[in-house]
């Protein structure tokens, strides 16, 4: 009797699972299909003012989004260059030394919690804070208008910090624990084990954390929109304004509906989707190997 009930429940559960799988897969497939379908006509238009040119001037019929693609890549890379080393060092400090001394243990626990808390801070809060604190600072000390690639990159570096720290902590921490005792038997302290044994074998984890951080930096909209200045140009210096694909989409959708400028956004969307798909595929590959 109860066996029959549990079998029925099992059947129902399997059905629900399949339905959920089917729904989410269809949703994703539809999304990709729609974006591609809308982007294709723009792609095949192929005029001089098409999406793959350097000038964005909708009034003159020029819809080039190359400056925005460059902006996204530049900003993603520089955010990673600023945020990743910091995150890696922070992670090593969090996991490496033996948990000795009340003060050091306390401060470690505190920083660990803080990093976890940082994942929950909405990006608009970072953006707003930076508008009032960071950009005046950059304006008065380094020059420019304070709304620049540098400003956005610094804040994006802060944004990806917790992501990178948590990924590294999960990957490196476990490995360190598994060899720490053997290392201690050889007379190495935890930092030495981490440096000489764990890190050289942890290329995949390091790479995965970098890729994830890059994906997060490229995908963020609010920070570049609020801080990067949004001029559709190839930035001449870190203090010049630049526009990312995400900020570009946010800017254009606020006014346009059903025009050529609007259509070119689907191209931007397709490129963003492709970047994120590549990121996630890379992660999948790395995950499979380790």
């Amino acid at each position: 009797m109860s066996g029959g009930g549990s079998a029925r429940r099992w059947e129902a559960g399997r059905l629900a699972l399949r339905l959920a799988l089917f729904l989410s897969m269809t949703g994703i497939a539809l999304l990709v299909l729609m974006v591609v379908a809308f982007a294709l006509p723009v792609f095949s238009a192929g005029e001089s003012g098409g999406p793959f040119s350097w000038v964005w001037a909708p009034a003159q019929g020029k819809f080039g989004i190359l400056p925005m693609i460059a902006g996204s890549l530049i900003l993603g890379t520089s955010a990673l260059a600023l945020g990743w080393p910091l995150a890696a060092a922070l992670c090593c400090w969090l996991i490496a030394p033996p948990p000795s001394g009340r003060f050091s243990r306390l401060s470690r626990a505190l920083v660990g919690e803080l990093v976890r808390l940082m994942t929950a801070v909405p990006t608009v809060v970072y953006g707003f804070t930076a508008v009032f604190l960071l950009s005046p600072f950059i304006r008065s000390w380094l020059g420019g208008t304070g709304m620049s690639g540098l400003t956005a990159a610094v804040m994006l570096g802060v944004l990806i910090l917790p992501t990178v720290v948590l990924v590294l902590q999960a990957g490196l921490g476990a490995r360190l624990e598994s060899v720490a005792l053997s290392g201690a038997a050889l007379g190495m302290d935890r930092m030495e084990v981490l440096w000489h044994v764990v890190l050289p074998r942890a290329r995949d984890t390091l790479l995965a954390s970098a890729i994830l951080g890059f994906g997060r930096a490229v995908g963020d909209t609010m920070l570049p929109l609020m801080l990067a200045g949004n001029a559709p140009q190839l930035p001449a210096s870190p203090l010049a304004a630049l526009r990312t694909l995400t900020a570009h989409m946010a800017l254009v959708t606020s006014n346009e509906a059903g025009s050529a400028a609007y259509d070119s956004l689907f191209m931007a969307g397709l490129i963003l989707l492709t970047v994120n798909a590549v990121v996630s595929l890379c992660l999948r590959r790395l995950g499979g190997r380790s």
Partner: peptide, 26 residues
Amino acid sequence: GTSAGGANVVNSNGAMKTAVAQDENA
């Protein structure tokens, strides 16, 4: 006429107010 290409772009009247209120040279 049109504006210079390197100008900072903001996306609302509110954002414009914040930007100009923050920047003495704006």
